[in-house]
Amino acid sequence: MKTYRALRNVLLLICCPLLIAAQENTAKKEERQSLIYLRYYVINNRVPYLQVQTKNKLGRAFLPQANVSVKIYLNHDADAESLMGQVVTNEKGVATLGLPASLAGKWKEKSNPTFFAHTDSSADFNATQEELSMIKSFLEVDTANEGGARILKARLFKYENNSRVPMAEVDVRLAVKRLGGYLNIGEEESYTTDSTGSAQGEFNRTDLPGDTLGNLDVVALVDDNDEVGTLETQMKVPWGAPGKFESNFNDRSLYATGNKAPLWLMVMAYGCIAGVWSVIIYLITRIIKMKRMARSI
């Protein structure tokens, strides 16, 4: 692992200057190779969508390319009837696309749909194409209690002729959804499905803070699998500790906003200001009084 990492980083180190050099010479380089990456996602077994990423390979560097228009077809390449849509990649070179309702018939045709992506040639991107075949699948998550242990179960099926068939030998992660990542429910990095399509693991994260009621969002996750793509199914379970969200945001303090200044400071500061300025105002009234006297003389 360590040697691999070292190797990878040596590579990165070599790539870094090249990457910079490559950026500078974008205009000149003729050997640009444009690439489309397709990823298939299904979250909570609902609407599947494709993520499209456009990158240019310049030398050894892969640079995301923004503003590329990509056409995507379902099952029948370059068939106007099967057009899923046309997307333009964002600044990170990424775009997403769901299945429009009009393609319902085409979608039901096959249990292993194929996606075809095309780009036209432009100044920033070459004409290129990519295809991706996926198996329609279903990832189910459930909980169980085995001798007091909290068990999270996942089951993976694929669709064959409108019926579900368990899928074996697929790695499934069982985790708790956290900000920006997934915290494994136990020590295991992932679990492999058996012949019934099931994988299960014990939840042993004691006192993991959940929401105010102690609920956690647990997920079963298949990450970028060659056959089924990326699947994620969530579920809420009361296995966490009730989260305590203490905040001194509304307290008066020296670092709070002006309207939440500490009282002692306000008393001191405004007290001093009031004291001195009342003297000044008094003195100004004295000047006015002297002026009045002049008039009365």
Binding site: C272, V276, V279, L283, R286, K289, M290, M293, A294, I297
Partner: peptide, 30 residues
Amino acid sequence: SFWRGTQEQLRICNRSIYILCITIIPVAFT
């Protein structure tokens, strides 16, 4: 123009200067 130099004006003026002299010291330190 309002200054006539009357006793009363002088008294007020001197007293005001005196108050100012006391007030300015803490303000200057601050």
